[in-house]
Amino acid sequence: MSTFKQFFQGTTLMQKGRSYDLGKMNLSQLWAAYLTYPTILLYFALIIGTAVLSLYLHHSWWGVIIPIPVIIAVYPTAWYIIHRYILHGRWFYRNPITASMWKRIHFDHHQDPHLLEVLFGSPLNTVPTMMVITMPIGWLIGGWGGAFSALSTALVMTCIYEFFHCIQHLAYKPRWQWVVYIKQLHVLHHFHDEDGNYGITNYLPDRLMGTFYRSAKERPRSPYVFNLGYTVEEAERYPWVMRRTGAPPRDRPDPARAPKNEELSKSA
Rank of each mutant, 00 (worst) to 15 (best):
F4V: 15
F7H: 02
T11F: 09
K16Q: 14
R18L: 11
L27A: 11
Q29A: 06
L41Y: 02
L42R: 05
L42K: 06
A45S: 15
A45P: 07
A51P: 01
G63A: 07
P67K: 01
V70Y: 09
P76E: 12
A78I: 12
A78S: 10
H83G: 07
I86H: 05
H88S: 02
R90N: 15
F92R: 05
Y93Q: 04
H106V: 03
H110Y: 10
L116A: 10
V118A: 10
L124T: 15
P128A: 09
P128K: 06
P128N: 03
M135V: 05
M135W: 06
G138F: 01
W139C: 13
I141A: 04
G145A: 09
L151D: 09
T153G: 07
L155I: 11
Y161E: 14
F163R: 03
I167N: 01
A171G: 00
A171K: 15
W176Y: 14
W178I: 11
I182S: 06
F191D: 07
H192T: 00
N197L: 00
G199T: 07
I200S: 12
T201K: 00
Y203C: 06
P205G: 10
L208H: 09
M209T: 15
M209A: 12
G210K: 05
K217R: 12
E218D: 08
S222H: 07
Y230D: 05
T231S: 15
A235T: 07
P239N: 04
A247K: 15
R252D: 03
P253Q: 06
P253K: 05
K260A: 14
E262K: 02
